[in-house]
Design a protein around this nucleic acid. Sequence first.
DNA 1: CAAAATACGATTAAATAAAACGTATATAAC
DNA 2: GTTATATACGTTTTATTTAATCGTATTTTG
Lengths: 134, 134
Amino acid sequence: MNKMNKKMEYALMALKHISGKSDQDLTSAKEISEQMHIPFEVMAKVLQALASRGLLKAEYGASGGYVLARPLSEVSVHGLSEMLEGHVALTKCLGNDEPCEISGTCNITSPISNLNKKVQEFYKSVSLSEVLHV
Amino acid sequence: MNKMNKKMEYALMALKHISGKSDQDLTSAKEISEQMHIPFEVMAKVLQALASRGLLKAEYGASGGYVLARPLSEVSVHGLSEMLEGHVALTKCLGNDEPCEISGTCNITSPISNLNKKVQEFYKSVSLSEVLHV
DNA sequence: CAAAATACGATTAAATAAAACGTATATAAC
DNA sequence: GTTATATACGTTTTATTTAATCGTATTTTG
Ligand code: SF4
Ligand code: SF4
């Protein structure tokens, strides 16, 4: 329960790195992946996902890279998680995919739904700037 | 990120089931596993873990079973998680096992540690009786 | 045109979680 | 006492999820 996945860690590392530079200073996927020893392809995919969701702005070409497109104070941990993984929920029955096969006899669907809401609210209450001290 | 595992779900289902009965009424692993369509061996292991941690009391023999040993209001979601999984943490570097291999170049160890503390405090603040409406 | 960067779908590999198996022990019912 | 039914627990196997890799296309600088 309750472990962070690598995509999230890599995203936080990248955002911390990028936020320490000026707005004109582009950061390439290679730069971060080498400095932090993150597999390049994975780092690139994470940055692409964040760019497609509007958190980063991508610049093409030989001297391209990424720059922040929105202030980190406007995005929560929950928001970042959704950018990388889409809809997130505690259990299967709360997702929008195929339903849980024992939901017919499950006695905690309502409690789980309430808990899920609380957890989401908690993660929405924590901004990325707060987490990263920027 | 942030998904609940089956052990936790099964534990909550069992606790909800048990807490709906009188203190003299024993509940066997088989009873729960059949009613909720949970694999018997898995359900049994979960109940054994909770009994060994003092949350349930086990009664041996042909008409044996489990009964609550502590009120659910005294145990938090975090507490239950620790009973089933031991030490829990957001990332590898926070655990007590082998350290993360890129911690030397990681720029978010301190932020992650703070976030982890917050998450733990949140889960400690939610009691099982609150979650299960009992 | 060549080099270096982002973009993205597809596949493979690794790690983790879940389930199943096997055997021992305790006790109530008969 | 024997049998049936329950907990106890270590081991193994299977399934699922996560992480990493591969391959190719596109864009832009120099
Ligand atoms: S229905 Fe019950 S068992 Fe199935 S995913 Fe929801 S909470 Fe878990
Ligand atoms: S050191 Fe950094 S990358 Fe490694 S587990 Fe901790 S936060 Fe994650």
